[in-house]
Design a protein around this nucleic acid. Sequence first.
RNA 1: GCGCCCGUAGCUCAGUCGGAUAGAGCAUCGGACUUCUAAUCCGAGGGUCGCAGGUUCGAUUCCUGCCGGGCGCACCA
Length: 550
Amino acid sequence: MALTDRLTDGVRTALAQAGLSPADACVWEVPRQAGHGDYATSVAMQLARAAKKPPRQIAEAIVRHFPPMPEVERLEIAGPGFLNVFLSPAWVAGTLRDVLEAGEAYGRGSAEAGRRIRLEFVSANPTGPLVIVNARAAAVGDSLARLLRAQGGHVTPEYYVNDAGTQFEALARSFEARVRQALGEDAPLPENGYPGEYLSELALAYRTDGGPAPDEVPAPARLEHFGRYAVAEMVNAQRRILADYGVTFDAWTSEQHDVRDKGLVEAVLDDLGRRGLTYEQDGALWFRSTQFGDDKDRVVRRSNGELTYFGVDIANHHHVKFGSAERVIDLIGPDHHGYVERLRAAMQALGHPTEAFEVLIIQLVTLLRDGQPVRMSKRRGEFVLMDELLEEVGKDAARFTFLTRRHDSPLDFDLAVATRRSADNPVYYVQYAHARIASIRRQLTEQGIGVPPWSAIDLGVLTLPEEQQLIKRLLGYPEMVAGAARALEPHRVAFWLSEVAGLFHPYYKAHRVIQDDRALMLARFALCAAIGQVVRNGLDLLGVSAPETM
RNA sequence: GCGCCCGUAGCUCAGUCGGAUAGAGCAUCGGACUUCUAAUCCGAGGGUCGCAGGUUCGAUUCCUGCCGGGCGCACCA
């Protein structure tokens, strides 16, 4: 049972013994100030009104009747009626054994046990290379997948390939033009085409592979031919970069093959139509999204007969996503946030619980170098690509930096800072803690010092304030992970790790592990091993490596 | 005009479910390697939590209004 649950039980028992009415909720928080104990609750203040007694008097009754517990050293009443709990140092030290024995499983929970979760992120159009904001979405999405898995969820990371519709056609025509140019023809790029150099390079590769010239492909099949080739190559390139970044997807959903070709759009539109939730106007088919809180009704099939992106996406969400999961999470860019409401309306109309469908907005990234903005203009081809970012700053620094901000706040990414190997860069600060611990382990081995099983080490000698503080911090790790998963906020893990490293480095500097006092040495090594384990577990949730040496 | 997000130290940002004296890193200034890795550590200064009301024992946190910034308001995706 969790410590706070035990404390709550103690409070309930004490209230009953004192003849006071029970508290419906007892919230424990970790006070900011050490003098206020390890845990505090304001339950006495909240009960004061109903009990018609001063809060301090209620608190005193709780203290008087609180059952003895090995975890608790003493209770204090403070301020207007706070109840402060001071943990027993011996019990605190003993918890280290639980951490070490749990190993890589330490921090896992069961909040999502058995639940199937569909998590879509990145999903860049297959019309160009991945750029820096895609790297942010990939870092956040992948970390979320890891967090939700750590809570027992069956997570399917999904990449939706937008290989149909107007953008697909623009890509197909642009690519065809580039192939013609590669053959020496004077072929202009179509209007609204994609001017990037990458399509010219792809055209050369296409010819090298022996792909047929445009005029050798029958006109009716030409668009499809060049479009499919370009999409396949673009998606492959995206997949490779993401794999280098440590991000893999279990589902690559094709708009054309997995949604449109399977008749799912007609099915879902018929479904909505039978419920009277669609209507024809001006030759187009509309969905009554206003009935579910949207500002206006939305077109699902245009008057020219073509489906809108929205129309297809309803089918995608209803049949593909919810067809295989109880919970659906989408990560999107801020430019699409106006789109969320209508999709939410559609999911509601189709009977999905509102809390089962969540959309996270991943804010934009402003790229800086030494504080100066790096211009990103697709038109002039100056935009910074994801592979260039990875080459310059590396996977670990990039991922960690993206995860030191809330996903919904815009981020300034300074290339110069992220490249710097110093404390400006919290990723190295955290990794260095892990490397230093690994170094201690190596030193022990080199000096022929054997370490007995954890159960044989007396941890009670870890009485320094720094040691107690570190252990208590490790004790809070599972709760932090559970909170990050619940709130879908992986940045909490990154901050937590920085804080633990910030406790470890001063401790390392001030107190030697390897020393003549064998009992103390072993206990301190156990503490370091536990810190190393938890840091490794936390970094793994971020997809960042935990190096043995640096 | 309407909607969403954001205003916290010089800068970049945390701040749990409403708690006690508001936090970190960077930057600035001053120090520390004979010792398990100096990618480290020790110390100092730095605040009207955008503004004004409201709710309450208590508000950076919740509500309303205003000011300032970003984004979105298509038979585009």
